[in-house]
Design a protein around this nucleic acid. Structure first.
Length: 123
RNA sequence: UGUGCAAGCCGUCUUAUCGCCCCGAUAACAAUCGGGGAGGAAAGUCCGGGCAACAUAGAGUACCGCACUUCCUAACAGGAAGGCUUCGAUCCUGAUCCCGAUCCCGAUAGUUAUCGGGAUCGGGGUCGGAAUCGGAGACAGAUAGUGCCACAGAAAACAAACUACCCCUCCCGAUGUAUCGGGAGGGGAAAAGGUGAAAAGGUGAGGUAAGAGCUCACCGCCCCAAUGGUAACUGCGGGGGCAUGGUAAACCUUGCGGGUUGAAAGACCAAAUAUGUAGUGAGGGGCUUCUCGUUCCACUUGAGCUACGGGUAGGUCGCUUGAUCCCGAUAGCGAUGUCGGGACUAGAUAAAUGAUAAGACCCCGACUAGUCGGGGACAGAACCCGGCUUAUAGGCUUGCAUUUUUU
RNA sequence: UGCCCGAUGGUGUAACUGGCAACACGUCUGGUUUUGGUCCAGAAGAGUCUAGGUUCGAGCCCUAGUCGGGCAA
C-alpha cells in the first residue's frame, strides 16, 4: 500500500506557485473540468495539484466542499497513471453549475490524466 | 383517537475497504500502534463582552446608540418578574335614548277610546365601569422651543362666521298700522349643515333673543394628594368648568452609555536586498470629526510626501481549560447565583473532518400485500464567548383548546 | 475576515423638506411614401426587490430578509 495516499506535500499550497501556474501555464478542457498545468521546477520530484470550485456557481459552502472532496478522492485513487511522468503543477477548475456524482467525476478525471501523460511526451 | 396552538428536546444509524487533519507512544519529517475530529443554527454580521495594539486612553466638542420599573448578568438593544396602555373571549354591572306590554294619575268626549305624565318589566342602540384568562406594545418628553399637517373645507391651531340662526339700526315694497318679505350695515353665537385622517370635552336636562360648561347630573380630562409598594405605579379624598389636536421611526430636549482599530490584531525567528534614482521641502506621525493636552521623529549632514525601481511573501506563538460542560444539593416566584463531585470535548491555514459498497430505519409513488423505483431537512468551524435574527424534512415529550367513540 | 453602497415601465435615469410615480430610447397603432427609413399624431406598458411597522398618507422614515456591486489587507 501507500500508493493511494494524498499527503500535504502533494498539494499545491504556495501562493507564488499558484500565481505562476495561472500566469504561464498551459491549459485544456474536458467537460466538467478546466485543467491548468506547468512543469514543477522544484527539487522534490512530486506532482502538486489543487482543486477549485467557483463561488459564482455554488453559493453554499457545503456544495463546494462536497465537489472538492469527490474530485480529490478521484485523483487519489487514479494518480498512479501519471506517476512516472515529469513532475507538474496541476489545477482543476470545476465548471458546470450542477453537482455531478462521484462516478461521472472519476471517469472524466481518468481521461484528463491520460491527456496529461500525452502532453508530457509531446514536451 | 385525531386536529390546532405554545414551550422544550432530538435531528439518521451499522459494517467493510481505501484515505485526510491533530495529539500521544515506539522514538524523531518516514513507518506502526492508540486516542480524538462540525452545528443548533457553525449562517446573517445585528448588538454586547473578553483579548491585543495604539499613551496607565486624558478634557471638551461633534457624532452614534439606548429609553416604563426593579432584578439577573462580565456586559448588552438579551433574559426574568412586575406596572401601564391596548386588543380578543367569558361573566357581572351603570348611565342615557328608542320601541313594546302592564299598572297608576290628570285632561277631553257616552262604559271604551285619544292625549300627556310617572312607575315596573322585556327587547334593541350608544357611551362606559369591574373581574378572570389569553395576546400585543421602539412604552421618556408634544404644558421647553421650532417646523410640518397636501387635497377638500368657512376655518387646520395665541381658533375661525360660508350657509342657516338671533338682536339692533337704516332703506324699499305690501297692507290688516305693527307685522310680513327683500336689501345694506353693526353686533351676538361654535348648538345645526357639509369637508376631512383630524373641527377644540361627550350624553341628557335647565337656561337664553338665539346660543354656549353659561348652570346642573353622570362620564371623561387637569391640578393637589392620603394609603400601599424598593420602584414603575396605585389614587381614598379634595379642588378646577375645561386651559391640553396630531407628528419626536421631523429637528430637538432630558437622562444614561460609547476613545479608535480588529487575530490578515499582535509577539518572535528565519530568508532577502539598494539608508537606490528623480521631484518636493519644514513640519510630520502616534489607525479618531475637530480643538486642547501629551508623546515620538526631524529641522538643510534633510523628517515626511509623490513617481519610478528593487527585495520578501516561509515558519513558531497567539490557538483553544473556558463568564466551559455534565450530575447532585441548596437560595430565589423566576432569570440566575452558591456549594460539592466528575469530565477534557475540533484546531485547519489555497484551509482536515471524506469516498465507495452493502444493510437497517423513516418518507413518497407504483403494482398490490412484499417487492420495485426515488428521496433523507436547513446547512460546514477559522481568536473565543453571551444573546438576537433568519433557514430547517421528520420525530418525541409536556400543557391548553377542541372533534368522535366507549364507560 | 471586516466595512460601504445600490435595487423604480423592456433599457438607461428622475422624483425637492413624506402628498395624483416623471423623462428619453425602445414597443404597438394610424398618417405621409410605390415600399422601407426619416418625420408627424396617438396609445399601451410600473405601483417603486420582498415582508412587517410608524404616519391620515411611504418610492422617500424605521426593522428584518433577498439579490447585485464596490473597498481594505
Amino acid at each position: 500500500m501507500g500508493l493511494n495516499t494524498f499527503k500535504k506535500s502533494e498539494r499545491l499550497c504556495s501562493k507564488k506557485l499558484i500565481k505562476e501556474l495561472f500566469d504561464k501555464g498551459s491549459s485544456f478542457y474536458i467537460y466538467p473540468f478546466k485543467v491548468f498545468y506547468n512543469p514543477n521546477k522544484r527539487l522534490d520530484e512530486l506532482h502538486q495539484v489543487l482543486f477549485s470550485v467557483p463561488k459564482r456557481n455554488f453559493k453554499k459552502a457545503v456544495d463546494r466542499n462536497l465537489i472538492k472532496r469527490r474530485m480529490r478522492e478521484a485523483y487519489r485513487l487514479n494518480k498512479q497513471t501519471i506517476n512516472n511522468s515529469k513532475p507538474k503543477l496541476i489545477a482543476y477548475i470545476y465548471t458546470p453549475k450542477e453537482i455531478l456524482d462521484y462516478h461521472q467525476i472519476e471517469k472524466k478525471l481518468k481521461i484528463s490524466l491520460e491527456r496529461l501523460l500525452e502532453k508530457d511526451i509531446s514536451i
